[in-house]
Design a protein around this nucleic acid. Structure first.
Lengths: 206, 206
DNA sequence: TGTACATCAGTGAACGCGCGTTCACTGATGTAC
DNA sequence: TGTACATCAGTGAACGCGCGTTCACTGATGTAC
């Protein structure tokens, strides 16, 4: 009645997840074999199936962990400044996304790889970013109401901002060839967005 | 001496490439088996190896075709307006990228998939966009010289622009859920970049 | 122009490798009495 | 507290499927004379 069994099982499940992240980072999700994971975790091949039905299901579990973390992060400050005419409000979001991507790059990259092969992951990954798009669109309404004409309707502009943020975060954190500190990288993206959505074009000053 | 043999061989090679693009578009590069390609081309499985050593080599051939096309496109107008303070100059580039991506989306997506699994393709894909980055950085020098402070140094700003353009083009052309015409999509990205790099921020008018 | 031989693109059945998945077994933990 | 049995996490060798790749064969095209 000590529950040693359950504890052991939970331990190996954790070990398998940790080992998976490690080998995903080393050789990529798609190139990883189940025996790579069990070997890295120091368990027998058959042990894997006591915990996960497949490599996809393991990644699903990692995705769930990640979603739980996202919820925590977002709820960290539910009443942050909603006005995107303020540079600081934009920077808050950019910095949060960089921090998130940095903390979870292995799983994020694995998910992107899985999405290339498996429609299920493609849609789940899209749903991960979708609420954020809506959230951003709301912020953009403030800009519009403040009298600054957006470069388009809020939703497509939010998609453009999203492309910029995720794309640059990827270049910075995965490819790692920008030669910037994270501070500078965040500032650059922040300024770009700040001017891009609310700044006056240089040719046609009002 | 009619050269019928060579003609036939060239014909099947073309058929294999065309069939490959078709099945890549349908089920993705990574999910495609060599027999899928030969079947779609109406040839026997063994015939494949008369033309390509592997699926990777076939994709390489498609990449070469694409690079040849890029060269043509770029040389179409070697002395376009280099001044990125002009909206029209930016729009020229954005429109060209959209047109390119639209014409070659199947191969581009296939290359992205291959890059996830194979470092070779990752570097070759990076080299495909690299010259464009340098080109864009030059354009940005004009902005700086015109007295508009960029949100960062030319190269990282070029990387940010690249992330925005490719990312949004992908959202628009592959995911297809922006609800915009291509004209509007190009305009949105153009305006975003135009203001982003040279526009004055709304909080701190000079 | 004709004949005999060589070459080559294409064929598709068969082979074999890699790897996911199974399963009989072990030893330890939990349960019943 | 002790004993007998049940259950369960973990093991790793073996199985078998899928698919890339080979290769003996065919029929047509090219070459030599």
């Amino acid at each position: 009645l000590t529950g040693v069994r359950k504890a052991r099982a939970a331990e190996t499940e954790t070990a398998l997840k940790a080992a998976a992240k490690k080998v995903f980072a080393e050789r990529g999700y798609l190139n990883t074999k189940i025996t790579d994971i069990t070997a890295a975790a120091g368990r027998a091949a058959g042990s894997f199936y006591n915990h996960f039905a497949s490599k996809e299901e393991l990644l699903s579990a990692l995705l769930s962990d990640l979603l739980a973390e996202v919820d925590d992060t977002v709820q960290a400050d539910p009443d942050h400044d909603p006005d995107f005419t303020h540079r600081a409000s934009i920077r808050y979001h950019v910095a949060a996304l960089f921090a998130f991507y940095r903390a979870n790059r292995t799983v994020m990259v694995a998910l992107q790889q899985a999405a290339m092969v498996d429609r299920t992951f493609a849609t789940r990954l899209a749903e991960l970013t979708k609420p954020d798009l809506g959230h951003m669109a709301e912020h953009l309404e403030y800009v519009r109401r403040a009298g600054h004409p957006l470069p388009g309707d809020p939703l497509p502009v939010a998609q453009a901002i999203s492309a910029l943020m995720w794309g640059f975060a990827h270049t910075y954190l995965v490819d790692g060839d920008t030669g910037l500190t994270e501070e500078k990288a965040v500032d650059l993206v922040t300024d770009f967005i700040h001017r891009g959505i609310a700044g006056r074009p240089p040719d046609q000053p009002t």
